[in-house]
């Protein structure tokens, strides 16, 4: 199953993923159109400055999802087939427990509301909008196996065998 992987070494902090995420969750589905919507669309990915890197953070769709566990109404749930953690606004109380449970701070409220929003991994799209928008391929939509294989491949090119010292005859 594909997930959104982050290659932090490639993130330039441009926030293109943030914009694309908001537009993907707008009525008009267009950058220009979404500017004129009465309720501005919300992003669900956040680029933060680390010590020496920029880090795009979004929902990791955790296996043991704390947000799902603490939700009293079942508004936050894990879709069996895809493993994606989804949120049903209609059942959301706005209690904020999921926000507290999320270790990454990527479940957030709309201004003036306690109803939360989070990454739904763009169910209508083949590739999530954030990944598509990333100009440096810091965001990748690949399987865990692929992600690890790429890293193994990369690290194996770093190895070299020490040569025996050249001895003069």
């Amino acid at each position: 199953m594909k997930e959104v992987f982050i290659d932090i070494s490639r993130c330039l902090g441009c926030k293109s993923c943030e914009l694309a995420c908001a537009v993907a969750h707008s009525e008009s589905q267009s950058l220009f159109g979404s500017l004129f919507e009465s309720i501005p669309p919300r992003k669900r990915i956040y680029v933060h400055a680390g010590d020496c890197f920029s880090v795009p953070l979004n929902c990791r769709h955790c296996e043991e999802a704390g947000c799902v566990a603490v939700c009293p109404t079942g508004a936050m749930f894990k879709e069996e087939q895809t493993g994606v953690v989804l949120h049903d606004c209609a059942r959301c109380l706005g209690c904020g427990f999921c926000e507290m449970a999320c270790p990454f701070g990527v479940i957030t409220r709309a201004p003036g509301s306690k109803i939360v929003a989070k990454c739904d991994r763009c169910p209508e799209r083949e590739v999530p909008a954030c990944v598509e928008a990333c100009p440096t391929r810091a965001l990748l939509f690949i399987t865990s196996q692929e992600a690890q294989q790429v890293k193994r491949q990369h690290i194996s090119t770093q190895f070299f065998l020490p040569r025996p010292p050249v001895t003069s005859a």
Partner: peptide, 23 residues
């Protein structure tokens, strides 16, 4: 780049580059 398309990135000084969230 959405910030470029909307005209809300600024590179006029070296405190930046800055951009404004349009939403």
């Amino acid at each position: 780049c959405g910030f470029g398309l909307l005209g809300i990135c600024c590179r006029n000084c070296n405190m930046g580059p800055c951009r404004i969230d349009p939403f």
